[in-house]
Design a protein around this nucleic acid. Structure first.
Length: 498
RNA sequence: GGUCCAGUAACUCAGCGGUAGAGUAUCUGCCUUUUAAGCAGAGAGUCGCUGGUUCGAGUCCAGCCUGGAUCACCA
């Protein structure tokens, strides 16, 4: 009977043998003079210098043979082969070494050399156990062939990879690099915004009212205040309050929480950047989105084309700008520009679309857009002129009461950004909220609530401005060419194991 | 939520009515330049769970659990 506990038992017995040798298996101190990457460059001069270096890391492979042994040592910067010879390190250290397993953290002191097989390695003069592995790691082996790494028995079970992400990161270097890239992307976004005079702010996650998007919230409770609170579904209404307060350019990168379904592009908690710029408008928001996407592709990832959801997406070109009505016509053949409600309703019904209660012409147009057009928009496209009915926080198009000055940036059928010329007329905003409240009363659980405090802030005056939200997870998916949001979130939401 | 696919040793997988298999990992022995080290040997499993059909069930059927794909809804 050898289940995982039997392996653990064997390792524990080994731990006792180590202690019996007088070796501390989890010592406090370690010594490191160099990263592995440092000894990997300029190999000849390391060898000629004969300098002793101290390396630390995890032993990821062991090849012992009699009185010598080889292993692979890995730290965050790289991987190098170690060579341990009994005659060089002495009997005691060699006995100590024999009790080391793949998975242990060790410290090695030695000089660099080439083995007979030509492998650049460190020749140990001393070895010290830094942390004993008690639970053996899944065995993944790899070899080089024609300069390419071939991996055997990769840790590939998708569910295990997400539930035990540390193993995924440890055993699958390509998955670790996705999260390194995610970090670089977010740093680059911050620099990009900072350079444009934006300041980064933090607004509440626990909110007495939720708003700024249409979604069902998570609810929690504050014991001392004895009030229910919501986890934010957006940062919008707080960031706008800051513009009222005199900041002119603010952004926030953070988690939002929406109590809705999970799938390839949705996780209940997800990262969003929202930013607001006084005296800008929708055109300014398009420019900034285009520049940001191009910058990230060009200067952070270093390429123009990305394979995403089976499509080749180009991020260097100019993004298409088209109105929702144009796209409906293009993909359904239906021209809704006459804004004829009855005709549009008949067309929707003829395609068996479910008509939301109290839907006006705007909602019908949105329905047609979502049904016929959205998923067919592949290359980056700013979809402009959203119906006002579904845009309660956006300014009306001048001279057009049915449409709002809003775009969504669509790539491969997915929304990547959503931006408005922000509504700053407190009377109009109140009317929009009231319309939302009526939708809620009609059973629309995702309709906004009326935020009196926000309306009061608007009454003090808010400058005209552009605002935008960009989904960070999806952006990372695109830039790292991953089709599932779980591949770019370190610990995605999973059902509890039963 | 609907539909389809998957779950067998620690890892990767084969087996698809007739005694549970392989490679890796593990354990024992040998081995002083290996590198998916090698050689010899050994141990290791409630075949996701619960029922059913059958003389006999990883294998067929039903329900459930977990995951994936897809559709519907949402960013």
């Amino acid at each position: 009977m050898q289940n995982i506990n039997q392996f653990v038992k064997l390792r524990k017995e080994k731990l006792e043998r180590i202690k019996a040798l007088g070796v501390e298996p989890f010592p406090v101190s370690s010594q490191r003079t160099h990263l592995i990457s440092q000894v990997l460059c300029d190999k000849e001069s390391w060898i000629n210098s004969n300098e002793e270096v101290y390396l630390c890391g995890r032993l990821v492979a062991m090849r012992r043979q009699g009185k010598i042994g080889f292993g692979n040592l890995e730290d965050a910067s790289g991987k190098v082969q170690i060579y341990v010879q009994r005659d060089l390190v002495g009997e005691d250290i060699y006995e100590h070494f024999k009790l080391c397993d793949a998975g242990d953290f060790i410290q090695i002191c030695g000089t660099m050399f080439f083995t007979q097989a030509g492998e650049y390695s460190i020749k140990a003069s001393h070895i010290k156990l830094l942390s004993k592995n008690i639970r053996p790691l899944p065995a993944v082996k790899e070899k080089m062939e024609n300069g390419r790494v071939i991996r055997y028995d990769e840790f590939a079970d998708i569910e295990l990879r997400y539930r035990k992400r540390y193993l995924d990161l440890l055993l699958n270097p390509s998955h670790r690099s996705v999260f390194e890239m995610r970090s670089r992307i977010i740093s680059a976004i911050r620099r990009f915004m900072d350079e444009r005079g934006y300041i980064e702010v933090e607004t509440p996650i626990l909110q007495p009212l939720y708003g700024g998007a249409n979604a069902r919230p998570f609810t929690t409770h504050h014991n001392t205040l004895d009030v229910d609170l919501y986890l934010r579904i957006a940062t919008e209404l707080y960031l706008k309050r800051l513009i009222v307060g005199g900041f002119e350019r603010v952004y926030e990168i953070g988690k939002n929480f929406r109590n809705e379904g999970m799938d390839r592009t949705h996780n209940p908690e997800f990262s969003l950047m929202e930013f607001y710029e006084a005296y800008s408008d929708l055109r300014g928001m398009m420019d900034i989105a285009e520049q940001l996407f191009r910058h990230l592709a060009k200067d952070v990832v270093g390429k123009a084309e990305f394979i995403y959801q089976g499509h080749k997406i180009n991020l260097w070109g100019e993004f298409r700008r088209a109105t929702m009505l144009e796209l409906v016509l293009e993909h359904s053949g239906y021209d809704a520009s006459d804004l004829d409600y009855d005709r549009a309703l008949a067309f929707c019904k003829s395609h068996k679309l479910e008509i939301p209660p109290e839907a006006g012409i705007g909602r019908l147009i949105a329905l047609l857009y979502e049904h016929f057009a959205e998923e067919k928009i592949i290359q980056p496209t700013f979809v402009c002129d959203f119906p006002k009915e579904i845009s309660p926080l956006a300014k009306s198009l001048p001279g057009n009461p049915l449409f709002a000055d809003r775009f969504e940036l669509i790539i491969a059928g997915n929304e990547f950004a959503n931006a408005f010329s922000e509504l700053n007329d407190p009377f109009d905003q109140r009317a929009r909220f009231e319309a939302q409240v009526r939708m809620r009363e009609l059973g629309d659980e995702e309709a906004s609530t009326l935020d009196e405090d926000f309306l009061e802030a608007l009454e003090y005056g808010m400058p005209p401005m552009g605002g935008q939200g960009i989904g960070i997870d999806r952006l990372v998916m695109l830039l790292t060419e991953n089709d599932s949001i779980k591949e770019v979130i370190l610990f995605p939401q999973m059902k509890p194991e039963s």
